[in-house]
């Protein structure tokens, strides 16, 4: 309902586009993803790989408030379909508001942005159904003709609908999660069409992982619940962790509005109780922006 109201307000604002200097923005992507540790398991028996198809679409009005400031409000819809673990299939519907300001004149002028988003994510398996809230601030700058860097801080909060405890005294709201992320990202323009990209992020907060019955893990966890998405005998658990993600990628321009992209991410989760997991993700996709 909240989303609907905001969309209506946005539509009204767009109606005043000529006055407010509004224009439409649209981003869409489609990706094929392969991931070798979907459940973020620590032990070999808990590690499951899978491939997925994902797509997302964000569209909405943007308002050029003054010579340096743009405010945008987009409706976001996304979906992901897994090949093996189909109970992880999910769709999300949300809204993102972003305020971006550029400080100065020219392509190398630094910029800063603040944004917030709300999304409703619905899974094939009820356990993961949740509301996701994010707040972020970031800044960036281009250096010369080739280099472009940005840094973002993001606070995320996920509120799950369900609390399915498996034992008395141990919460079952595994997917009630929050975390703080610092993300650094850089792009190198190799030639007119090809960009290399690299990034590092550190998220400090709670993560949800999956394991088969394991007492040390349960003792280190703050919530445990049966996880039918991975089959009988699997449990999802919530645990505090430092999550390091290193990403490298290649982006090839296809015309003015789209690009083909390949990204590889290596994730290292360093959780309480000496629990460490690794995840490798390869993403091949197409990105369109109008």
């Amino acid at each position: 309902m909240k989303i609907l109201v905001t969309l209506v307000v946005a539509a009204c604002l767009v109606g005043r586009a000529d006055v407010a200097g509004a224009f439409w923005i649209l981003d869409a992507d489609a990706n094929a993803i392969w991931e070798d540790n979907v459940g973020l398991g620590k032990f070999k028996r808990d590690i499951n790989s899978d491939s997925a198809l994902s797509t997302s679409l964000s569209a909405g009005p943007a308002f050029q408030l003054d010579t340096s400031t743009v405010f945008s409000l987009t409706g976001d819809v996304s979906g992901k379909l897994y090949e093996r673990y189909t109970r992880l299939d999910n769709v999300a519907l949300g809204l993102t508001a972003t305020l971006r300001r550029k400080f100065g004149l020219g392509a190398e002028a630094p910029w800063a942005r603040a944004w917030g988003s709300i999304a409703r994510q619905q899974y094939d398996s009820d356990l993961r159904d949740s509301w996701i809230y994010r707040l972020g601030v970031g800044a960036g700058k281009r250096f010369g003709e080739r280099w472009d860097f940005s840094a973002d801080y993001i606070y995320d909060r996920r509120l799950a609908d369900h609390d399915f405890p498996v034992a008395p005294g141990i919460p079952g709201d595994v997917f009630d999660l929050s975390g703080h992320t610092l993300a650094l990202r850089g792009n190198f323009l190799f030639n007119e069409r090809i960009s290399f990209l690299g990034g590092y992020s550190l998220r400090i907060g709670e993560v949800a992982s999956t394991t088969q019955q394991n007492l040390p893990i349960f003792l280190a966890s703050t919530a445990v619940s049966a996880d039918p998405a991975f089959g009988k005998g699997f449990f999802a658990y919530r645990i505090d962790a430092f999550v390091h993600t290193l990403t490298v990628g290649l982006s090839v321009a296809i015309g003015e509005h789209s690009s083909a992209n390949v990204e590889y991410s290596h994730v290292i989760g360093d959780a309480r109780g000496d629990i460490t997991y690794h995840d490798n993700i390869i993403r091949v996709g197409f990105l369109y922006r109008y």
Binding site: S259, L287, R289
Partner: peptide, 9 residues
């Protein structure tokens, strides 16, 4: 600067 989109930007 490239007009076509780059992931994450």
């Amino acid at each position: 600067p490239r007009r076509s989109p780059v992931p994450g930007q």
